[in-house]
Computed example of a mutant assay.
Amino acid sequence: MTGPKLVSILRQGDWLIASIHTALDDSQMLLFRNDLVEQIGRHRSRGVVIDVAALDVLDSFGANTLRTIAEMARLRGAETVIVGIQPDVAFAMVSLGMDTGDVPTALDLEEGLAYLGRPTGARSRGRRDAAG
């Protein structure tokens, strides 16, 4: 018998919604990265939402891998937004000097999808977050 899924990747029109359901070790994070980037190409996705709401910790490798995924997605023609960073995780990231780089963030899935649905010009003017 297999355990619960660690991540799920769902297609919603031109977008992929990738939800991380539990903390991933480094090898699982790399498998997630490879699978997501492969699916971006297979589905010709224009946008990706990575939902990390279930995570109560995000280490530097995980944060770096999320930035790498976003850059790989961009090179494949898809924009990425990270959603659901918990307050304690955000506090720890700031305390440790970690960030999401140029990857936009949003409060939740609804705001992340709204961000991807905005006209391209609004995103290209330098807005980093979907909340404001």
Rank of each mutant, 00 (worst) to 15 (best):
Y115K: 12
L6T: 09
E79C: 13
R44Y: 11
N64F: 06
R33V: 02
T120D: 06
L10D: 15
L113I: 14
S95L: 09
G77T: 05
A122Q: 14
T120M: 03
L6D: 03
T68G: 12
D102M: 06
I85D: 04
S95E: 10
R76F: 06
R127M: 04
L75A: 10
V48L: 14
M93Q: 07
L31E: 14
A54L: 02
I69S: 03
G62H: 04
L55C: 09
P119A: 11
A122D: 13
R44V: 12
I40K: 05
G97W: 08
L58P: 07
R42C: 06
E111F: 09
M98S: 02
G132F: 12
W15S: 05
H43L: 03
H43Y: 13
F91G: 04
G3L: 07
A90N: 12
A131C: 09
F32H: 04
A53W: 02
S45I: 05
R127V: 13
A122C: 08
R46H: 12
L30R: 12
I40F: 03
N64E: 15
S124W: 07
A106M: 10
N34L: 15
L109T: 13
S95W: 00
V103M: 06
R74D: 06
F61I: 07
R123N: 03
T2R: 05
T22F: 04
G132Y: 10
Q12G: 11
D129I: 11
R118I: 07
A78G: 11
A78C: 10
G121M: 04
E38V: 03
S27V: 10
S45V: 10
I20A: 01
L30A: 14
T68F: 13
R128P: 00
L6M: 13
G3S: 06
Q12D: 14
Q39I: 05
D102A: 09
G47K: 00
L66S: 02
